[in-house]
Simulated assay, not measured.
Amino acid sequence: MTMRDSTVLIVEDDRLTAETYAEYLARAGAFEVAHTSPSARDALAFLAERRRRTGSFGIDMILLDMNLPDGHGLDVLGQLRSAGFTGGVLAMTADTELETIRRSIALGVVQYLVKPFGYQQFAERVRSFRDLAIEIEGPGRVDGQEEVDRAFARMRATGPSDLPKGLTEETLTAVVAVLQSAQSAQSAGEVGTAVGTSRVTARRYLEHLYRAGMVERSPRYGSPGRPENEYRWSGARRGHSTR
């Protein structure tokens, strides 16, 4: 039997990030992007119209950002759950507030990926949910508690971090915050001072983000001493990197 593609709605206001998710899905295989919504209003309108025309939402998976220009992603999800949407929702967000995480769990978010992340983490999660959804779709019963436990364990499963050895998620998050708030491009030394690490350590994180396509790198001219690079946050991701 030929496996059908899983239909995906991307809810993400940053155009480059949304395009990257679409590229990641194409790379992962067996996914079809039905629509990309840049706002809460657009997502709700798209799904309402789709349901009106076809009689169902017709969406297997939603990739959901939390901080949308006209509302919170979980408010969108709450309305969809009330309307009977039972598809999988994977949060893709920089929001690490405990309240957001608690609400996500309550509303049935099956995976929660904290930005920035790379292709491997993304693919592990969307494939894991897709495979589970296929396994449990349709009528019937499972054999017992062991099968139920296996299904829930697979839903919670996460892939290994794709950070290079020696880098930590906590410091990476701090480096990203510095770049996002900076008014101009930053050198490794400036970032290191801001986050409390050495210039060499900061440069490793900056180069990781550069390879991931999250920052732009350019030479800094006119500085005394040896030449150095400066880094500016872009938020975009290269669709074909191995990050």
Results as ranks from 00 to 15, higher is better:
residue 78 G to A: 04
residue 55 G to S: 12
residue 143 D to R: 11
residue 32 E to K: 14
residue 85 F to R: 01
residue 93 T to S: 04
residue 119 Y to M: 01
residue 217 R to E: 15
residue 94 A to G: 07
residue 237 R to V: 03
residue 207 E to T: 15
residue 92 M to G: 10
residue 56 S to E: 03
residue 156 R to C: 02
residue 116 P to T: 05
residue 225 G to D: 03
residue 106 A to S: 03
residue 5 D to S: 14
residue 28 A to P: 09
residue 152 F to P: 08
residue 129 F to D: 07
residue 113 L to N: 03
residue 173 T to E: 11
residue 218 S to Q: 14
residue 84 G to C: 05
residue 159 G to Q: 00
residue 89 V to H: 01
residue 232 R to A: 14
residue 138 G to T: 08
residue 232 R to I: 10
residue 189 G to T: 03
residue 211 R to E: 14
residue 69 P to S: 08
residue 26 A to E: 11
residue 93 T to I: 00
residue 82 S to C: 09
residue 172 L to Y: 02
residue 160 P to R: 01
residue 151 A to K: 08
residue 106 A to D: 04
residue 108 G to L: 04
residue 33 V to F: 00
residue 192 G to F: 02
residue 240 H to Y: 14
residue 25 L to V: 05
residue 158 T to Q: 05
residue 85 F to M: 02
residue 31 F to E: 02
residue 95 D to E: 01
residue 171 T to V: 07
residue 57 F to H: 05
residue 70 D to C: 13
residue 199 R to S: 13
residue 215 V to L: 09
residue 128 S to V: 10
residue 134 I to S: 14
residue 68 L to Q: 00
residue 15 R to Q: 15
residue 48 A to Y: 13
residue 236 A to L: 06
residue 29 G to R: 02
residue 170 E to G: 06
residue 110 V to N: 13
residue 240 H to K: 04
residue 44 L to Y: 12
residue 232 R to P: 11
residue 118 G to H: 00
residue 62 I to R: 09
residue 23 E to T: 13
residue 198 S to F: 07
residue 5 D to W: 05
residue 110 V to H: 03
residue 231 Y to A: 05
residue 231 Y to L: 01
residue 18 A to N: 07
residue 240 H to D: 11
residue 210 Y to W: 08
residue 28 A to K: 02
residue 186 Q to N: 04
residue 193 T to S: 05
residue 18 A to W: 11
residue 138 G to L: 07
residue 4 R to H: 14
residue 19 E to W: 15
residue 137 E to R: 09
residue 138 G to C: 13
residue 80 L to Y: 00
residue 189 G to N: 05
residue 238 R to G: 12
residue 179 L to E: 00
